[in-house]
Amino acid sequence: MTATRTEAPPTAPTRLADVDLDLLLLIRHFELSLLDMFGRGELHGTTHTCLGQEYVPVALRPLLTDGDFVFSNHRGHGHYLARFDDPHGLLAEVMGREGAVCHGVGGSQHILRDRYLSTGVQGESAPVAAGVALHLKRAEPGRLALVYLGDGTWGEGAVYEALNMAALWGLPLLLVVENNGIAQSTPTTAQLAGSIGGRARAFGVDHLRVTSTDTAVVRSALGPVLRRVRERCTPYVVELLTHRVGPHSKGDDNRRPDELAYAKAHDWYARYAEAYPEQFTAHDERQRAYVAQVVREVTGRPASRWAEADRG
């Protein structure tokens, strides 16, 4: 079945605990700093920021345990920071500096740490996560495998092969779809026929659509979903209608001004600042300064090294 939550764009967001607000702001300033550094030519390669989507992993954070597997994608900095609170390790990875999570080999979109993995091919993680979920079902019941997908990822056949097997075999596989309405430069309406909910239904997999960008609302909507996946050992598709406030990568945004304005109007950042200026201003300043200090510290580190013994 499909359920839909259609809260109107909230004029008054829920007041968050400091820890949640700090994490949202940490991710926001981390991403803004990356774009700044790219702009100044201080970063090499590419990156995909999650500006506007920070609340998704923040909402999920307390609903996950260390025993759960998380599969992230190309737009994964928020996913990582919500799991590990390690901006130094992540920035060092992006910059190829000492202390990098993966010695600078993986970079922005290929990270493995404990039970967290990201990789750069769309949809590829879904069957892998199904395999992990098969193992969890047999060896560690109650734990789940979560895969972050974008709306564009639903063009990949691997997603359907994974959904099919997860439904047939009753696997604790949670697909979290960050549907930001645009796949790189292609609007979702031009690349996805039917609906994500309809596609889930075709496999007999439950689907929940959440339109709110309020961390607390999203969290309370997702709580029962994760419980159900754990207790009934069943796959589930959660679709979050979200808004990519920044470019796909670095300045490659061809959206019309009204489309950009629409995304910006749904950005939690400005709305929260307006609703709780005192709490917001103090924490925003603190996280901005913290990230600036992380950037200074990591920039000053020597280059990462990839030892012969670590080369596979």
């Binding site: 597997f69 069957p127 996560a129 199904a130 395999g131 193992h135 047999r138 691997a158 097997m165 075999w169």
Partner: peptide, 26 residues
């Protein structure tokens, strides 16, 4: 019976599932 499974016709998916089992230490 639990460790030998017939699968759907999904070669990519099957090798992915197997990769996931291997990633989990199996």
């Amino acid at each position: 019976p639990d460790r030998v499974r017939s699968t759907p016709l999904s070669e990519g998916g099957i090798v992915g599932v197997a990769g996931g089992l291997a990633l989990a230490g199996q």
